[in-house]
């Protein structure tokens, strides 16, 4: 069971992990605070439960993330390593296979395909628009940001006991998972796990994969008859 607060915090961490690396991230990875935060979040979501949502070996690997950079003395060097790997994996690279962070690529082999247009429409419905100079609408991080947006909305509805907003938001999340996240995140994560030379990205990809599987399951477990009606309204609009 992933509580709302935990989901929000985990999404924040995942967005940071899959955005272009910054010095703060490099420092936090090297000193271990980044992995500690993830491990703590995982621990909090499973508190009181006999079984953890995430595989034990994944938690162990996350815990060991700083080990990779033990030999690297300066944070700047950690950043250089992360930055080069990020470029190689997600942006441009020459000598080896890499990962496309755009949903359209997985369906049509291009950027700005139908998936991107659908995402744009979803964002517009929520009063959002892609930032100029930011990532494309169907980029992994943009979709994570939208998921975070929806989760924050869900939290707001929940705290204000706005049932209509809560149900509509849950429907939107379900729709976004079904139509977008689940259609390509698992493949994308698998590719990162295969091709990344830096364990940070391999581990984060596995974490992300587990996170979305849980998130998706969570949404389906709590689907009510009333939700179906709202969902129909939303999807056919």
């Amino acid at each position: 069971m992933l509580y709302l607060t935990t989901r929000i915090e985990m999404l924040e961490l995942l967005i940071t992990a899959f955005s272009r690396p910054r010095e703060v991230l490099a420092r936090e990875i090297a000193e271990g605070s980044f992995s500690t935060r993830i491990v703590n979040r995982i621990a909090s979501c499973c508190e009181g439960s006999s079984r953890c949502c995430f595989p034990k070996d994944l938690i162990e690997t996350i815990r060991k993330l700083p080990d990779e950079f033990k030999e690297v003395q300066e944070d700047r060097k950690v950043l250089t390593i992360l930055d080069a790997e990020y470029l190689r994996l997600f942006v441009n690279d020459f000598p080896s296979a890499w990962v496309q962070p755009y949903e359209s690529w997985y369906h049509e082999g291009r950027t700005m395909g139908k998936a991107a247009l659908e995402c744009l429409e979803l964002y517009q419905r929520d009063g959002l628009a892609p930032v100029e100079g930011g990532e494309l609408p169907d980029h992994l991080v943009t979709q994570l940001e939208y998921l975070l947006f929806l989760t924050l909305l869900e939290k707001k509805a929940s705290s204000e006991e706005d049932v209509a907003l809560y149900r509509m938001t849950r429907v939107k999340e379900q729709h976004f998972y079904e139509r977008h996240i689940m259609t390509w995140f698992p493949t994308c994560c698998a590719r990162v796990q295969t091709y990344s030379r830096v364990s940070f990205y391999r581990v984060m990809a596995r974490f992300l994969r587990n996170f979305i599987v849980l998130g998706n399951r969570n949404l389906h477990l709590h689907r009510s008859g009333f939700d179906e009606g709202v969902a129909h309204d939303y999807k056919t609009a």
Partner: peptide, 30 residues
């Protein structure tokens, strides 16, 4: 419902420390 969501979007975006990097408030309503 969408109008309501859009009206709260600004608050949601602002609620995240550091904001969103790739999504912003649209200039027009959905």
């Amino acid at each position: 419902m969408e109008g309501s969501a859009a009206s709260v979007a600004a608050g949601i975006l602002a609620s995240r420390l550091g904001g969103f990097e790739n999504l912003a408030l649209a200039k027009q309503r959905a």
